[in-house]
Design a protein around this nucleic acid. Structure first.
Length: 486
RNA sequence: GGUCCCUUCGUCUAGUGGUUAGGACACCAGGUUUUCAUCCUGGUAACAGGAGUUCGAUUCUCCUAGGGAUCACCA
């Protein structure tokens, strides 16, 4: 009795992938994978006025970046195509006629002007704005005449005038709506294209979709969809409405208050692994308490029946943590490649990164790996590795209660020690050994020497160990930087 | 405003008719450490309120409150 799972991700091509939609695709993908089903991509572009050039291509590009694939879709074909709604007009026309013939839908000639006035009137009387069904019972003759006269029309669905519509959400159970709350909504627009409400039902049915996964914001129109299935006498798929993701102040995540597109996060240096792990944790939780989840593990463990239903706040700090975690796990060669674009961008003004050897860059990345929360952080914290002139306040050289005079004296000692280390022995270990051994023998305070040394080498208060920095900089450059202080 | 959805630490959440209400992020403290970061240890912190059912409710029911969504020829 169990049909093979067919689940679709149906974005409208806006030109970018909303961070909330990332969770949706992730879940459709995981449901498909965990149930051995088919993952389908369908483009919902029935609104011609919102056409965005190249949107479909860029959508597929991010989806590829995330690593989510489809079994059927616009560029890969499949038995149920086309997978782009604007190319399915004939199909919609056919079903539109069927509905009209059945008496479940009707022509409406009301002008947008009239409708707007109607709504204003209703609002003034504090009535809910709803279509007044003026055209619901026009005679066949009148309809034919008005069409002949070239009047524009839409097709509306005939909703029941009384009774109750009971719908079933897989997560929430039964939800009841009173029929009189429902509007005779538009199914076919005056340009002949279907509305979302009509197209989803037709497409989901004709593509044999078994699970509809969408955001909670669709619950209010859920009964309309179910009524359409009933009008056609079709069996409805399972509906899973996911809780919304809210911004920090509890509102809807929108463009105005910051980054909402996956592309934004990508360019800021967030890793796919982190984005996936973070997204899935909003609304779903593993059985054990290990929250580090990679895609392979998710494919095995994910079950939509365990999803939560309360809306969640988008917590960027947790995303940052996860991102830092995955950066620390990265193989150094791979991380270096990932960091290069950010280094290049930042060094345009000061230096040319192409002049640096790959070895050098790799060392710089390796030494900063545990400090990165985002890939983009690499640029700012490593400038001193690429600059010829360090700009910093020499007051900074003094450690705790030291004077800067003392700091300079201590640097003299460091300089002498470093100078004695032969070029071929210039490694962080031998540098550390030579300095620490000396300081300990003389019972000197380590911090009073290493702090000035680090500042002299990096010009920063926070940096990796001065031994590591010195090794990467090389003997000549290190000595030069210390000498400059004097 | 009508309708609908939601309600466990600040945030994401686990969980049960009887638990010291668990974990993660954040935060605080301590340790490692020359700084930052990492890492380790520990800590603060929650069942929205009321009524009912029950020997017993965070858990079940109802009400209230709060938050959110939606009310287009947009999806």
């Amino acid at each position: 009795m169990n049909k093979k799972t067919r689940i679709r991700f149906a974005p409208s091509p806006t030109g970018y992938l909303h961070i909330g939609s990332l969770r949706t695709v992730l879940f459709t993908y995981l449901i498909a994978k965990s149930e051995g089903g088919t993952h389908i991509l369908r483009i919902e572009d029935t609104d011609r006025s919102r056409f965005v050039e190249g949107a479909q291509e860029s959508l597929i590009e991010v989806l590829n970046w995330i690593g989510i694939d489809f079994d059927e879709g616009p560029n890969m074909g499949g038995k149920f195509g086309p997978y782009v709604q604007s190319e399915r007009k004939e199909i919609y026309d056919k079903y539109k006629q069927e509905l009209l013939d059945k008496g479940e839908a009707y022509y409406c000639f009301c002008t947008p002007d009239r409708l707007q006035k109607m709504r204003e009137n209703q609002q003034a009387k504090k009535l809910p704005p709803r279509y007044d069904r003026t055209c619901r019972d026009l005679s066949k003759q009148e309809i034919e005449e008005r069409i002949k006269n070239g009047e524009k029309y839409v097709i509306r669905q005939k909703m029941p005038k009384s009774g109750e519509v009971v719908v079933n959400d897989e997560l929430r159970g039964e939800i009841k709506f009173k029929a009189e709350e429902l509007e005779d909504h538009v199914l076919i627009k005056s340009d002949g294209m279907p509305t979302y409400q009509f197209a989803v039902v037709i497409d989901d049915h004709s593509m044999e979709i078994t699970h509809v996964l969408r955001g909670e914001e669709w619950i209010p129109s859920f009964p309309k969809n179910i009524l359409l299935y009933k009008a056609f006498d079709w069996e409805a798929p399972k509906f899973i409405h996911m809780p919304l993701t809210l911004n920090k102040s509890g509102g809807k995540l929108s463009k105005r208050q910051g980054d909402v597109s996956v592309e934004d996060y990508k360019s800021k240096g967030y890793l796919v692994e982190a984005l996936i792990n973070f997204s899935v944790l909003s609304g779903w939780h593993p059985k054990d308490d290990n929250e580090i989840l990679d895609i392979e593990r998710l494919k095995k463990e994910f079950n939509y029946r365990d999803m939560g239903i309360s809306p969640g706040v988008f917590d960027i700090e947790k995303l940052d943590y996860l991102n830092g975690y995955y950066i620390r796990q990265k193989d150094i060669d791979e991380l270096t490649e990932l960091c290069k674009p950010y280094l290049k961008e930042n060094l345009k003004k000061t230096n040319d990164i192409e002049k640096q050897s790959d070895e050098y860059i790799k060392k710089v990345v390796a030494i900063e790996q545990e400090r990165l929360k985002k890939l983009s952080d690499i640029a700012e914290i490593t400038t001193f590795f690429f600059e010829d002139e360090l700009n910093y306040d020499h007051e900074m050289l003094a450690w705790k209660k030291m004077t800067s005079e003392q700091a300079k004296e201590n640097l003299d000692i460091i300089y002498e020690l470093l100078e004695k280390i032969p070029e071929e022995n210039w490694t962080n270990d031998s540098i550390e050994d030579s300095i620490v051994t000396y300081l300990k023998a003389k019972e000197l305070k380590i911090g009073e020497y290493l702090w000035p040394m680090r500042v002299a080498l990096t010009g920063k208060k926070a940096s990796p160990s001065p031994f590591d920095v010195a090794e990467i900089l090389g003997k000549g450059e290190s000595l030069k930087r210390i000498r400059k202080v004097k």
